[in-house]
Design a protein around this nucleic acid. Structure first.
Lengths: 340, 340
DNA sequence: CTGAAAGCGCTAACAC
DNA sequence: GTGTTAGCGCTTTCAG
């Protein structure tokens, strides 16, 4: 079974390859009749153009890359969905890459994109990433990059974020209003933009309430599950254990729930918890989890739309370099006060 | 800034393009000295080969496609992770496509693969898919396809599954042992292989216990959220409301929890629930959810490994055409009996 | 309106 | 060991 290409069509129709190519692209320089003939035969023979040849020639692949630290996380799953929806609708293909929070992996992956493999990149930085030379290198080569969620602060690259600082502030104030007096802050990497922003908001709220900001209440959990447990258990069972926690990442909230169950620390009576999270099951947890729900799908959509505008060279000037889509604070039982 | 390619390297070194090409591939016909020179300059100039050119020429792209109905689901997220892990390690790239349970989308997506865009495909079928002509068409063109989780029964294509029938049986027996006498079965599509298998197991368990198998207890929920609620509420509040439910898909369990809360149906006292699910938060739900936990990551890995063997033409004969990785039943509070 | 020709960057015979 | 050559399948000038 011989593969059918432009040449096959051309000779079958007694036309030249270039005419067929133009006809298939609905070029204005081809007569309506010819176009009809070409289209018909293409359909009959089920012609599917070879994208590698096209990419090579055009220097455009109609492929984008999505680089994220993790996929088994409700935020990133939803974001992918948003990205893929736009991509599919625009006729683009989506390559996906996981960094597992490793800067080295991130660099290796991005380096490959120097090759012209993709037309543009959407990336959420790894927890280890403290500089973005590997990202700007692509920009310098003319390959558009959009940062989303976990961005880099000192750059002019287009960024899609949510109101992290404000949300951190609101979450903390939410706990303060519910009489928490020793509020902790959990994160997984202190170099992450989202961690810094959320923590800044957390600190602002404490200071506004003239509460002390204690370093021992701000925990950055390591990668290792076993170590995480030790460190967080230490905080929760210590002499001055917190009575409130802001979990800046979903998985730290899950860990807290698991440990509280094991350690018999009742939520919300002894410890109130609020988390940045997109868990569909937040309202079904025991107790239901108060969340800062991020607009994950929308952020994915926005990132993709922005990228395609860049790729297709739409008037870039008119596009905001940074787009902020607000999160929503949803109070639930995990931060409820005992009825008086 | 001019893009650097084989020609650049060749002329800079006073070698021919083909020599440089061979050197970079560590061909045995090139002298060690030349290889050294080539590698060194390639590193200095940061040469990155153009994958489109290579794919065109070799008729091999080092890209695979993953086609799934949904990504915001713990099973598929984990499976992707397993697939991507193997792909990255093998030096392959992973395109991702979502069908949103639509057969038409699935067909469109697969049709494009006739082009040679990818070297192989891993697919979990949409809920609407009742024939796989679009899949076998690829096989006939020599493009390897591996089915996983939601497979098609009448085919010899390689398949990665879990023990669905047995798990359905065990889940149902689990409920029977906990004194449920009116056990319902929830699904999202009755043409899905996993639905059929799990339901077969469910029926087998009922028959073994000489219990009636009632069609009104076997619910296939539509796509629309609002309709889902009406139908499931109808069952839960009906005259002969079930006292046990087997949720064959994670999202039906979540819906059940949400409705039970709204309708004030206590779990497990009035209704016991067990679900096929990979929810990380299953143990934290209120009440904690008994699950049939599928080996999602392992299935992803197995699918990818199998595909790469096929792609790389390893002795296909020796590979099992169907691999079954067992699930695990984890009893939790949602199926607990009241203490006597 | 159609066709001839060149070439995207790389690989693989096949010479030398 | 190294170079020459001929494409992979497509797009795009440029002639006619």
């Amino acid at each position: 079974m011989q593969t059918i290409n432009l040449k096959t069509l051309a000779s079958a129709l007694g036309l030249s390859v270039s005419t067929v190519s133009k006809a298939l692209q609905d070029s204005h320089e081809i007569s309506p009749e010819t176009k009809q003939r070409v289209w018909q035969l293409a359909r009959e023979l089920d012609y599917v153009p070879n994208p590698h040849a096209s990419s090579l020639r055009r220097k455009r692949s109609k492929i984008i890359a999505v680089v994220i630290p993790e996929v088994a996380d409700s935020f990133f799953s939803l974001a992918i969905k948003g990205i893929e929806a736009v991509a599919q609708q625009k006729g683009y293909h989506t390559l996906i890459y996981l960094t597992y929070e490793s800067l080295t992996k991130e660099q290796t992956i991005l380096h490959d994109f120097q090759s012209g493999r993709v037309d543009g990149i959407i990336i959420s930085l790894s927890g280890q990433t403290t500089h973005i030379d590997h990202v700007t290198a692509l920009e310098r080569k003319g390959i558009p990059v959009v940062l989303f969620d976990r961005i880099f602060e000192g750059t002019t690259l287009p960024r899609i974020i949510t109101n992290d600082r404000e949300s951190g502030y609101l979450a903390t104030r939410h706990l303060l209003q519910r009489q928490c007096r020793r509020i902790g802050f959990l994160s997984v990497s202190d170099s992450l933009s989202i961690t810094k922003q959320r923590q800044t908001g957390y600190i602002a709220a404490l200071e506004e309430a003239t509460m002390p900001v204690l370093p021992e209440y701000m925990l950055t959990l390591p990668d290792e599950r076993a170590e995480q447990e030790i460190i967080l258990s230490g905080l929760l069972t210590g002499p001055d254990a917190p009575d409130g926690l802001v979990a800046s990442v979903e998985k730290t909230a899950i860990l807290t729930y698991q440990l509280c169950e094991k350690l018999c620390i009742p939520i919300p009576e002894q410890l109130k918890v609020i988390s940045f999270s997109n868990l569909e099951t937040a309202s079904l947890l025991n107790p239901s989890l108060s969340t800062i729900t991020q607009p994950a799908f929308d952020m994915g959509e926005a990132a993709a739309s922005t990228l395609f505008n860049l790729v297709e060279g739409k008037n870039i000037r008119s596009m905001p370099t940074i787009q902020c889509i607000p999160s929503e604070l949803i109070p639930r039982r995990s931060t409820q006060q005992a009825a008086e």
